[in-house]
Amino acid sequence: MTFDSEYFNIGYLDSLSYKDTFVHRLDPRVKLLVSFVFILFVVSFPKYDISGLIPFFIYPVFLLTAGDIPLRVIAKKVLVVSPFALFIGIFNPLFDTNVLLTLYGISITGGWISFMSIMVKFTLTVSTALLLIAATSFLGLCEALERLKLPKVFVIQLLFLYRYLFVLLEETFRMLRARDARSFGKKGRDIKTFIRLISVLLVRTVERAERIYQAMLSRGFRGEIKVLRRHSLRFQDFLFALFSVSIFYIFRHYNIVNILGETLGRTLR
């Protein structure tokens, strides 16, 4: 992951979140809670289960299409962040070598099945988290957190971080350009240069905080910051929540894949 791609990625997700679609218009609280419930349902499946998980793809696909978000962006990010789950999951086939069945002469062990199950869960949860932020403005999410009674200090911290994230990334980018322009190849990337570079960035950051504080004081700041409320719950929010959660519940308790497969098997016979 290079610096530029990270920067443009976060900017791109941010720009997607200002679209105006049905999904974008939903109350952020509802989207946040429904997505969280979705993830809980997904991870509640036992480790040898794959088929039960498949119908759950409907939720990210709904966010993706109804939110008018390009598939390529999400797919790429899911691939990029997979290493840790892959790293842990790949041991399952090594340690769990009980052959659960043999298909066309190929033995399939429990390890491979649980590994596949981890990867499916991973794809579902990660794509949902990314789609959530692509379909909800960050400010909306912060508003949701505040209204869900998270401490205000924390919510304001998130807002400030997000506000200055873009400013500081740009500043860092300029410093890195200067470093790379004066160093050739790998030189300039040693720890000593790094420490000096990041220390200077830190000092500049603290100085910026001092200037911001002065700017706040100059406009009468006395320790209180108001978080603006923009959204209110509407009928479609309740409808969306009710509908989604019932579907998750049905998918969790009735294995749609098996029921369909069985029916199909019977007709084939």
Partner: peptide, 21 residues
Amino acid sequence: RANDQLFMPTVYEDVAFGPVN
């Protein structure tokens, strides 16, 4: 530096910051 002056999440909230205080 305008970036130091604009510390709130949106233009509205930023301009409103002083009057609210």
